[in-house]
Design a protein around this nucleic acid. Structure first.
Lengths: 230, 230, 230, 230
DNA sequence: GATGAATGAGTATTCATTCAT
DNA sequence: GATGAATGAATACTCATTCAT
């Protein structure tokens, strides 16, 4: 039935299409408002942005967390595609480094996601599965580099995730003053990942200046109030 | 020192002392509950732990944020003392590395602080001043190491803070399963800080296992709900 | 009877039959879920149990209340049949007592109905009519008993309904610990209905024990929250 | 300290007095709105009636149920006083009957309470204690009557509560058309409580007329919607 | 100064009902 | 007719902050 690809005319499919459309709208809206204003936003705000009623959001996602998880799953799959693509890179080191860069680029662009990384439930089935889909590619990237001796031997594939998360910090921290500063620290870490090296790789970004440090947190965007930590 | 300087009526003296005592009690209580339960606790809880009324907390600190900032200032001063102490270390590299380790140890032990680092206002006068007090020591540590050629030349003193914050991530992330795992990443970064090196320093902690990754977020301790992000 | 009367296109005939089938399905489903979980269930749950969409429920019944009323009408008709049957009982007293017992048995078995009795609209036309259908039989039962002097003279037929409703209370109250305890109070009331009597009829059930009283309300089943009372 | 009765001047007492005053205001308001509109009212509505903020209500009572329980405890204590008073009645039967009448009068006057009787948690400590305070007096009333042979021998003290609850039904049912009709059924039950009797006691109220039956439920006051059953 | 009582805006979530497909 | 997606008003409860005592 579904294999007739383009032409789907049954009524129930019609409905599903509408519903799916709304689901996409909601995810898009959530990505937007989470990115702009962080996880603290109301699902009402998400609904408004999506142009649907709150009830609709709740019909698709049992609660805020589930919505955040869905976004996370989406992003994990994008990261997987990046890993997959880098496997084609003939240079094992470039592949690994390129993967990290792309992964952090994806994550660092999305403020909501950066928070999700710290707060989301990592035990959701959905997330477990997305993680499982990503894992093999990362393992290949790491093991190939180790086989070729271009990365330190004691690096473990699971370190990759932590490194990505760590690089999230400069991105979040300097979001308002210099969002790209995380590349400086990526270079630093990459230098740490080498088994041995003759010289330091020049850091690609200047450090945050004193002035930048002072403007680090945009007062408008901040709120500490009811912040329930993990 | 303070108890002798100015001559005032015993009455007001008493009051000042009481007030200061209360201030200390509140800070101590806040450190405790923030550490145990994160920034999400109510000020009523802080007040209760301190054995004072909420009103008293508000008399000492204009709002919750200011209290968090004060704790941060406290911690910055501890970090300063660590930096100061490491200046006596005859080995410039050991001094720098030792400082980083101590700094992260101080920060990583304190859950509330880890959250403050992501959420607190960094532009408070108090914080600016504490930062200013710390800065010269860090500069000395970095510059001495650079002078002796034991650290990469393009490291900037302000990088140190970002590195500390980054290492906060594995600490926070793996808090329930292996709080010490951040040392693994400290070693990695230290290797990255070297100007050149013949071999990789063995990583001191095993990577998070698959099982640990699954238990990363303690469901009891998590809450996303009204989490107001920065 | 209905299948023969009017001659219509098979089409519309079919539709009517389907519609009636659905109506029955919905009533059955409603009876089931109301009985199991009380009136608090959503109409979505009723629809699901019936295997139809919510929209279909609303096509058959203008709102939740109307559905409840329909169930009540159903039950009233069952009660009517009980009354009708008892008219054949040669003993006027036994007929009256037997009717009460059967009526309460019917009502007490159904949790949703017990709640409907407190909350439903009693002025619906449907209900008025069902009541009207029942009334003559009750009148006969009462008047025969009075004529034979086996029941107090000042009993009014309309008292019967109130007595049934009253007996609903022990049934609802002790639902989790001893659903049959209402028989104790039926006996008590029957003794009160006698014009005169030489002795008390032994009560058929023990009173609720202290332990039973404490378990009266099953914490799992209770909810007060948004309970909209009458 | 407190024994100095009238003159209390310590500050903390001052505050307690205010708080207690508000507590009383809230209880009074709750009794009023519960009585008028049933348990379905919002605590916001209770707060408004009391002239305080919702927060204040929640400061005194953790939730709606606790407030309802508190009212119930209050009422149980009034019932206890009624029982206590009736012990002085030289006629054992009159005492028992008088107690029932007073108890139902107290309960039937309060619509919220009638609902609480069906929905409240009966396992609260507060309620257990209030019940424990009442129990001995009821036992005395029943046992004295049994000793004197004026009540049926198999009546159990715990029956008294159920009888009161049962009589709540006509009160609730006929609330808008004839709130006093429950007396008719009290008489009936009292006749049932006698060990033997020569004649029926004339029922003190006429039965509900057909017209009254039709007006039984005030459409304004009804709501079925989210009614969560017990 | 200290207290803790009071406040009320704010939030996640539910569910009866409507309506486009 | 049937479906189930969409709606959004309504509700219980929290907590940072203020202020009377």
């Amino acid at each position: 039935m579904r294999s007739r690809s383009v032409d789907q005319t049954t009524q129930s499919h019609q409905l599903r299409r509408d519903a799916e459309l709304n689901r996409q709208r909601i995810l898009k809206a959530a990505a937007e408002v989470f990115t702009e204003r962080g996880l603290g936003v109301t699902l009402d705000q998400v609904a408004e942005q999506a142009g649907v009623g709150v009830g609709t959001v709740y019909r698709r996602f049992p609660n805020k967390e589930a919505l955040a998880d869905a976004l996370f799953v989406d992003k994990l799959d994008q990261v997987r595609r990046a890993a997959e693509a880098e496997l084609d890179n003939p240079d094992a080191w470039d592949a690994l480094a390129g993967f990290l860069e792309q992964a952090v680029t994806l994550i660092a662009a999305d403020r909501g996601l950066r928070q999700i990384l710290m707060f989301a439930t990592y035990s959701t089935d959905q997330i477990q599965q997305a993680r499982a889909r990503l894992q093999p590619f990362v393992i290949q990237l790491v093991e190939r580099a180790q086989r070729e001796g271009v990365v330190r031997a004691d690096l473990h594939p699971s370190d990759m995730a932590l490194i990505e998360f760590m690089l999230t910090v400069p991105a979040e921290y300097a979001w308002h003053v210099r969002p790209s500063v995380w590349r400086r620290y990526l270079t630093l870490i990459l230098d740490g990942l080498r088994p041995a090296r003759a010289a330091a790789t020049p850091l690609p970004e200047p450090a945050l200046s004193r002035a930048e440090l002072q403007r680090v947190h945009d007062p408008d965007a901040r709120t500490l109030g009811t912040a329930g930590g993990p």
